[in-house]
Design a protein around this nucleic acid. Structure first.
Length: 282
DNA sequence: GGAGTTGTTTAGGA
DNA sequence: TTCCTAAACAACTC
């Protein structure tokens, strides 16, 4: 489940190869779905003998820059279960290892057993256009309370859970992170965005930033989080709220598995019918 | 063997 | 037209 923090952590794995040229680009299965947007043979010829010079992550997207001018760029999205690994230089790709960059000291491997990941390739100005067009990080200065307020008003009919999964506004937030944010903000995942009062919108804004910042700092090597987070409790059967001890509830909301605390995140109150509607009902 | 899971895209409905 | 929902994609685990 690669979300913002896992993506950042994953990106750094390949940094061991910075400064070294790629001796060979191995495309394990050129017809694999991960290459659906590019010609893998082109990628193969353009990266050969080029040094890896830098890497960067933005939300769930990663960019690896190659070449003396850093203008040959590999874009990677991990999808649901994509992974980056480092293997010995003579490593032979296994079944789900679709891309392998062989360097003198190691091989950089991209694997994805479910094929929801995506490999992209851009050169020169096209790389900058792609990277610059990605939405600003929720930890950046551009993610303001005003911007969030505008967004929740425009998406007033959307429940908060699917709202937080919209990458155009919350890049990097995935399924568990959305649950964590709503839990900390004390907001029920089925609350409609348009029903948020200003203080609730502000809590949502603060907790979105807090969870995204702290996730990168506090994630352990095995992608686990402290017991004080909702994270370790949301997976187990049953499970209790680490704040109040109540039994956690689970349900599919917006098509996604959702976990929340019924005590800390009370269900949205029903609308009181207007006098006119009440007369019609009677 | 069937259900459940994960993120994004797309098609279709309201 | 805009917004929202649900299905499809693939392959593995339980």
């Amino acid at each position: 489940m690669p979300e913002l923090a896992e993506v950042e952590h994953t990106r750094r794995k390949w940094d061991v190869g910075i400064g070294q040229p790629v001796r060979e680009v191995v495309i394990h299965k050129p017809a694999a779905r991960v290459f659906r947007k590019i010609d893998p043979a082109h990628l193969q010829s353009r990266l050969k003998n080029q040094p890896l010079v830098s890497s960067e992550a933005k939300g769930k997207q990663m960019i690896f820059r190659f070449g003396k001018k850093a203008d040959r760029c590999l874009g990677i999205h991990l999808g649901m279960e994509g992974l980056l690994r480092v293997e010995p230089p003579d490593f032979a790709p296994a079944k789900h290892d679709y891309l392998l960059l062989r360097q003198a000291a190691q091989s950089l491997v991209f694997s994805d057993h479910r094929l929801f990941g995506l490999i992209l390739y851009f050169e020169g100005a096209a790389a900058d256009r792609w990277w610059d067009a990605l939405p600003p990080a929720v930890t950046s200065d551009e993610f303001t309370l005003a911007a969030l307020t505008t967004f929740v008003q425009r998406r007033k009919g959307t429940a908060l859970k699917p709202l937080l999964l919209m990458q155009e506004r919350f890049p990097g937030v995935g399924n568990w992170m959305a649950d964590e944010i709503l839990w900390r903000a004390g907001l029920h995942p089925e609350t409609r965005a348009g029903k948020l009062a200003p203080p609730a919108t502000e809590r949502l804004w603060k907790m979105t930033r807090e969870v995204c910042e702290r996730a990168i700092e506090e994630m352990a090597e095995d992608w686990s989080y402290p017991d004080t987070w909702l994270f370790p409790h949301r997976w187990e059967d049953g499970g209790a709220c680490p704040q109040c001890g109540s039994d956690l509830e689970r349900k599919i909301i917006g098509g996604r598995r959702t976990c929340w605390c019924p005590h800390c995140q009370p269900a949205p109150t029903r609308l009181t019918p207007s006098p006119k509607n009440a007369r019609q009902a009677a």
